[in-house]
Computed example of a mutant assay.
Amino acid sequence: MSDTGTHTVHRRLRTVLAVALAATVTTTVGVAGPAWAHGGPARPGVVALPDGFQPEGIAADGRYAYLGSRATGAIYRADLIDGTGELISPATGTPSLGLKVDRRGRLFVSGGTAGDARVVDTRTGGVLATYRLGAAPTFVNDVVLTDRAAYFTDSYRPVLYRLPLGRHGGLPPAEAVTTIPLTGAFQQVDGVINLNGIATTPDGSGLIVVQSNTGSLFRVDPATGATTTVDVPGQTFTTGDGLLRDGRTLYVVRNRLNQVAVVTLNRAGTVGTLAKTITDPNFDVPTTVARSLGRLYLPNARFTTPPTPATPYTVVAVRP
């Protein structure tokens, strides 16, 4: 074959390959529904939960998310890769609200109106420990973990609860739990949800909480309970629910507004600016947020939908 013929064949091959590549790209981008595939199988943008589950809290570890039922206290593990899942801890008859999972595979669970917290083994579903935190009226709402302690909010009382962790994360005896009264800028309002989500500051020296009814963010000194308002000029975060900090970025879930406010903090967590607001058509009163696999995952609590045993519930994935 002459050089001219060879070049013609090569040009034709390149044309065929370019057309095939374009078709492949078009097919990938055009996948129905919000799914992403980055070097692996497409991950679902919406993960179904059991009908009637009534989720509120979420924690994530790798491909798995853990969700608690505010109705029964059961814990469900969802596979974020293939969308399957199973109950790993049975109903307790009391709520399971805010959740956090540590690197030892232990799930710290806020007990809502039960006024308690429990620690669940994510591998077996067994309860490792239970702690009495608050007396009625109480609503133990959310939890954050540090290297030395777990801190819980109470929406009906102006306090935090501290569960100290021992060497290598050892769980303490029941009497080790302490109550931290809050002082300073934070002011409790009776009869409504006050403190809700909780996170650590970027420098690790303090805690950040959101007051749902006023929309204010507060920095808390965990050693003294002293609070100061986090200055986010021109912004309040009413209906603020779960918090998640990633570096200097704080995600504030605003449940009934179907929004996530994205706030950039300084290192001390005393000042912030609103960077953007995340919305999604699949949101239906999301309560809190976890990050995994490069995505944010939010459970739809559907507070505005009357719950029945057949009511569907989902977890929605969005880009950070």
Rank of each mutant, 00 (worst) to 15 (best):
S69Q: 12
K276L: 02
T305L: 11
T279S: 13
T94Y: 09
G197D: 04
T270F: 06
Q188R: 04
L21H: 03
A317Y: 11
D142P: 03
T214P: 01
Q235V: 04
L163K: 07
L257G: 03
T28R: 14
Y76M: 00
Y76C: 02
F218H: 15
A290H: 09
V252G: 08
P222N: 00
T26I: 14
D51G: 10
T92A: 14
G215A: 08
V144E: 11
T239D: 13
L244A: 00
D284I: 07
A74Y: 08
V316S: 14
A129G: 06
G115P: 05
L107C: 14
G45V: 10
P286Y: 00
R43N: 01
A18W: 09
L145I: 03
G134S: 15
T179A: 00
G294N: 07
G247C: 07
F237H: 05
A174C: 00
N282Y: 13
T146I: 04
R162S: 00
Y251N: 02
A275Q: 14
G191C: 02
A268F: 06
I208N: 07
T273S: 13
G62Y: 01
A136W: 01
G215S: 02
G125R: 05
G105H: 06
T229E: 15
D121L: 07
R219C: 03
V16N: 05
L67M: 04
S155I: 04
T239W: 11
T4M: 03
L182I: 05
S89W: 09
F218L: 12
R43E: 11
H7M: 00
I75E: 02
P137G: 09
L128E: 12
G40K: 07
R11I: 05
V19L: 15
T279G: 10
T305W: 09
G83R: 09
R157K: 14
L171A: 06
R77S: 00
V318F: 09
P158W: 06
T239Q: 14
V192F: 03
T314S: 15
Q259R: 14
G134T: 10
T4Q: 08
L87N: 05
N282L: 13
S110C: 08
T28I: 13
P202A: 06
D3N: 00
T94L: 10
P299C: 11
A117Q: 06
I75L: 11
T84K: 10
R106A: 07
V209Q: 04
I180D: 04
L244C: 00
N213H: 08
F186T: 06
D203M: 02
V29T: 15
G33F: 08
G85C: 12
T24M: 15
V315H: 03
L87R: 12
T130P: 09
Y64E: 05
T72M: 08
R103Y: 11
Y156V: 04
P173G: 11
P164I: 06
T224R: 12
G184D: 05
L13A: 13
R291D: 03
A20C: 14
D142K: 06
G240F: 06
S155G: 06
L107K: 12
K276P: 00
T224A: 08
G68Q: 10
G215F: 05
R104C: 02
A22Y: 01
N213K: 09
R103N: 12
R12K: 06
P95K: 10
R123F: 11
L145K: 01
D241I: 09
A59N: 06
R291Q: 07
P158I: 01
S155K: 02
D190E: 10
T24A: 15
E175S: 05
G115I: 12
A71F: 10
V140I: 15
S89R: 12
N266V: 05
G269W: 03
